Simulated scan of single mutants.
Amino acid sequence: MTSVTDVSELSYEEARDQLITVVNQLEQGTATLEESLSLWERGEALAARCEEWLIGAKERLEAARTVPTNAPSGDE
């Protein structure tokens, strides 16, 4: 498993895929308590990274849909 410190470098898709893997491992119930805690912490970090990407995407979409009222029309 990769370290928690590299989560900030992941794309949305990478973080999502790793989160799915972490959830699957936790659902299997075969990990020790220490491993489970580590997986949980990793999952929390991955979920936060996904949320960062989604918030950023939402902001970009809102900015793209918002047309400033004082924008030049291009006729000038």
Rank of each mutant, 00 (worst) to 15 (best):
L26K: 01
A45H: 13
V67L: 09
Y12R: 15
G74I: 05
T69M: 12
E44G: 12
S73L: 00
L26D: 02
A45K: 13
E34D: 11
A15K: 08
D17F: 09
S3Y: 04
I20K: 03
W53L: 01
I20Y: 10
E14T: 11
A64S: 13
T69A: 09
T30D: 09
T30F: 10
E14I: 11
T32E: 05
E35W: 04
E51P: 02
R16E: 07
V67C: 07
P72C: 02
A64V: 11
L37E: 10
D6L: 07
N70F: 02
E51F: 09
V22R: 00
G29P: 01
T66Y: 14
R49K: 12
Q28K: 11
T69N: 13
E76M: 06
E34W: 05
G56N: 01
E44M: 14
E52R: 06
S3P: 02
T30K: 12
S36Y: 12
V7F: 00
Q25W: 11
R49Q: 02
K58G: 05
P68E: 01
E41K: 15
A57C: 01
A48W: 10
A64P: 07
S8G: 14
L37F: 11
L33T: 08
A64Q: 13
A71P: 03
V67F: 07
E14Y: 13
V7S: 05
P72K: 00
A57Y: 06
R65G: 05
S38W: 07
T30L: 09
G43T: 03
E52T: 08
T66C: 15
E41C: 14
V22L: 00
T30A: 08
E9K: 15
T30I: 08
E41M: 14
S8V: 14
E27D: 08
T2N: 13
V7D: 06
L10F: 06
R42N: 10
I55K: 08
E62K: 14
A31W: 07
R49H: 02
T21H: 13
D75I: 04
A71F: 02
L19W: 08
T21G: 09
G56L: 00
I20N: 11
A45S: 11
M1F: 11
R65P: 00
I20E: 06
R65W: 13
W53G: 04
W53S: 03
T66L: 15
G43D: 09
L33F: 12
A31T: 10
N70H: 08
E34P: 09
S11K: 14
S36G: 14
A15T: 06
D17G: 05
E52V: 04
T21S: 08
S8A: 15
E52I: 07
E27K: 11
A48L: 12
E59R: 15
A71W: 02
V67H: 04
D6W: 10
D17E: 03
L46R: 12
N24E: 12
G29I: 04
C50G: 01
A63S: 13
W40D: 15
S3R: 08
R16V: 04
A57H: 07
I20L: 11
R49N: 00
G29H: 01
A57D: 00
G74K: 01
N24S: 13
